[in-house]
Every structure is written in structure tokens, then in C-alpha cells.
Computed example of a mutant assay.
Amino acid sequence: MQLSRGARIALRLAAAVGFAVIYVPLLLVLVNSLNPDRSASWPPPGLTGHWWAVAWHNSGARGALWTSVRAGLGATAIALVLGTLIAFAVARHRFFGRGTVSFVVVLPIALPGIVTGIALNSAFSTVLEPLGVGLGLFTVVVGHATFCIVVVFNNVVARLRRTSGSYEEAAMDLGAHTFRAFADVTFPLVRSALFAGGLLAFALSFDEIVVTTFTAGPGVETLPIWIFDNMTRPQQAPVVNVVAAVLVLLSVVPIYLAQRLSADTASGSRV
């Protein structure tokens, strides 16, 4: 489709405004983390790395970071197992209600986080507390896994739909049992999709705050919750800016890698 010169200029301006709205605030967070003043004065009188050193030695921030990493790894592990199994069931088998299963798996990512959080909090209080299991890191991991499964499922099922099952059938015809066929044939074909899905799942879990608020018990503080609790404390404002900048940078890495993997495998692994 050919666009007029005016239309192209308008689209570029609209794209520039959209990107500015998204990324300029993130850039300001990074600049404020280097601001020598405790207040977010603008323009900053200079640049300093002092607050980065202070944040590094802040035990609360480091503990929250480690909690977020553990929660992210746990949710990603669950999502990889369940998301992959569901993807294989949907993509490789025909059964009654297959479309319903796909819809139910994808639904949690579309639900408002506060609805998911309230539902999980109620379920944990009703089911787990009578068994002596209260809210804590375990419930946070389970809560995050409910929406992390979606990204793994979407990545793997998309790959399986582009990959013919005849390769697995040929391997079994040659004497390979089911697990050998999966290890030698299927897994190499879906490996990059699994990795991309795992990276996206970890990124989603790492910066989740709404569901975490409803599923974390006393003493369980992830990095986003630490930021939210400390952002209104004037003495902590510079450290919060540093931690927020780190959170942005840490979130960019897995998303970028997942995007590159998805793009490369989409263009180079059609069969």
C-alpha cells in the first residue's frame, strides 16, 4: 500500500509521540538515579553514582531482589512444565473441548491483576490455611505461575503448529520410543521457543506487583513491593530511583532475548 508523503509524516510523528510517552519517563528514572540531590530536582545539578553504592548496600533492597529472583525462577519452572504439556496436548492431539482448554489457559493473562489477586487470596485462605499453609513465597510463586503459563503455552503451541508431526512419527517408525523421539527430534525443534517463553515468564513474574500484593504473606517482599513501599519516603527517594532503574534494565534483557529468539526461529525454522 502506497501512502502519501503527508500520511507518512503523520505516522512518523504519531510513532515518535507514542515512543516518547513510553520511554521518556523511563529515561527520567535513570537520570534521577544519578541525581546528587535527594529531591528529584530538574535539571539535575550534576551526576553521581553515590546513590547506586547506597542502594547496593541497602539490605532491604537486596533481600527484595533475591525474593523476586526466587519467585521468578519458581513461577518460570512451573510455567515451563505445565505450559509445555498443555501446548503438546492442544497441538498434537484432537479431543473434545480442545478449544475450551486453549481459552481457559489464555484467560488469566487477560483478567485484571486485582481480580486474579483477590481470587487467589480467597482460594489460598479457604484451601491452604486449614492445612497449615499460610501466605508466603510459595503462594506468590503459584500466583505468578497462573499467568506465566500463558506465555510459555503461546510460544510452544505456535512452534508446534509450524512443525510437522511427521518427524516424530518417522523417529518412532525407526524404533525410537516416545521419550527418545521427544529428546532427539521434538525438543531440538521447540528448544528456542521454550527458552523464549521462559524468559518472558521470568520477566512477567519479576516485575509483578498486583497479584503479589494479594498472595504474599508477612515478611515476603519482592522488589516491586519494596519500591512501592519506599517511594513515599523522602529519604529513600534516590535509592528507589536506583532500584527502579535496575528493575527496568533487568526486565529489558530477557524481553530482548526472547524477542530475538522468537524472530529468528519464526523466520528460520519452518518445516
Rank of each mutant, 00 (worst) to 15 (best):
Q236P: 05
E129G: 03
F206H: 04
A110D: 03
V21L: 15
L247C: 07
T100E: 04
V31A: 09
W51M: 04
G143Q: 10
G99V: 02
V220Q: 07
V151F: 15
S59F: 02
A40F: 00
N155M: 11
P36M: 13
A64K: 12
F206K: 07
F124D: 09
D207M: 03
R161L: 10
V90A: 15
L194H: 03
A123E: 05
T212V: 14
L250M: 14
T67I: 12
L128C: 13
A61W: 01
Y23A: 05
G117V: 00
S102N: 15
L28D: 05
F187A: 14
W42A: 04
F228P: 02
M172T: 08
R162A: 14
I209W: 05
W51I: 06
I78P: 09
G97D: 08
L137T: 08
P112S: 12
A53I: 00
L200P: 06
S251C: 08
F138R: 12
V141M: 12
Y23N: 06
L120S: 09
A16S: 12
P218S: 13
F103N: 09
R62P: 01
A183W: 05
L199S: 05
V220F: 03
H93P: 02
H144N: 14
L82C: 13
A171H: 12
V157S: 14
L200R: 09
